[in-house]
Design a protein around this nucleic acid. Structure first.
Lengths: 213, 213
DNA sequence: TTGACTTACCTAATGGCCTTAGGTTTCCCT
DNA sequence: AGGGAAACCTAAGGCCATTAGGTAAGTCAA
């Protein structure tokens, strides 16, 4: 029983941390990402504001934890989508993964703002929180490389430029959609609807070499 | 002399307003857009914070004025670039205008954040402040239409979808560049460097009909 | 020139925020 | 059962935006 008690306590603690992060996300959804208020979080949890400092050393630490958690969630979401896709159809798998990515971002706009637009004054993600973002970028590179190796894309698509271009195309749709029409669904959004279009443009640009240059 | 005195007074007043807006931009450049502090503005102007309320009814009104001013500056910048371009080369003029647009945004990242990413909690631009943004959108439509009429683009390029796609392509480069590599120059930026690439992709997609569909 | 009015500032104050300091209670483990 | 840590608390300092109300100077009409 010696470890059981300790476990229970740390488990409670972990629960509280999750609760704090959950409430923080909720509040940001209604008030705006940069308007997060520790006092409001504490109020909703029935605590006094200083008590939160038992769990996070500062407000920025909460942003940091959410940054990390968001990137982990998004990364895992994309990996799951990619894993579930038909491995013999790299192009289709790519589209499915991109779709999963965009869907998640549209469904978690608060996270998106935190992850992709550095918009909270004074917040700089820690290296640790940044790690899953690097994972995701690497995953993208791997997917592009797989498609190149399968002969569906010109080798340049897997270069730095290809990855930058691919991510910019998607970032553009998402940022326009979220900024101008945040309530539209994935299917109806004036901008996000163009996801297949921009992907097709990408594949067009990086047509493998058997055609003309 | 009755109007001269009044003029002088209103001129002084206008100068103060400009001064406030200028200081606000400066402070946002160092502290972040959402971190603007009226107290800091007043401090830098040698005023007490409540005195600012002689000029703006609230902090949001300052954001609103800057939103409008930013869109006016950007609109005029693009119009000047377009007017200076060779009218007999619609494609070249389009590239020049897009370049001017991106250069301005990179050189005025604070404005960009305010204009394109609705990131300040509680700020909603007034219809008046929004007007020049509509101008800019219309200018883009006009440019696309000119290129269509000149036979350089498929008519679909001037549709809602074409404009949404065009703006998303550019917004993607800008948002990635500003979020991930804000200090890079227009020439060196990993993302913004791809401006000619994405424009070429756009013209590729909307090749006029004499080719195949 | 004088009196009324407006403008441009001010101080004081309210109520919010983040954060630190330091205390108390409750829980857990030995 | 008692030592110690964890989880909370209150109090307080120093920011912030905003409102209320005052004062002094500039402007205008008579």
């Amino acid at each position: 029983m010696s470890t059981a008690g300790l476990d229970r306590r740390t488990r409670r603690r972990q629960e509280t941390i999750e609760e704090i992060l959950g409430v923080a996300i909720e509040l940001m959804e209604t008030d705006g990402v940069a308007a997060l208020s520790l006092s409001a979080v504490a109020r909703r949890l029935g605590m006094q504001p200083p008590s939160l400092y038992q769990y996070f050393p500062s407000k920025m630490a909460i942003y940091d934890a959410l940054f990390q958690r968001g990137h982990e969630l998004l990364r895992d979401e994309c990996r799951a989508a990619y894993a579930a896709a038909d491995a013999d159809d790299p192009l289709g798998a790519g589209l499915i993964t991109a779709t999963a990515f965009c869907r998640w971002c549209l469904g978690h706009q608060v996270y998106s703002q935190l992850l992709f637009w550095r918009t909270v004054p004074g917040f700089e993600p820690s290296p640790e929180a940044f790690a899953p973002a690097i994972d995701s970028m690497q995953d993208l590179r791997d997917i592009l490389r797989t498609q190149v190796d399968a002969g569906h894309l010109h080798p340049d698509a897997a270069s730095d430029e290809g990855a930058a271009l691919y991510s910019s195309l998607i970032a553009g749709l998402l940022s326009q959609q979220i900024a101008n029409e945040p309530d539209a669904s994935f299917e109806d959004g004036r901008f996000i609807r163009l996801l297949p279009v921009v992907l097709e443009m990408f594949y067009q640009r990086y047509t493998p070499n058997q055609g003309e240059s």
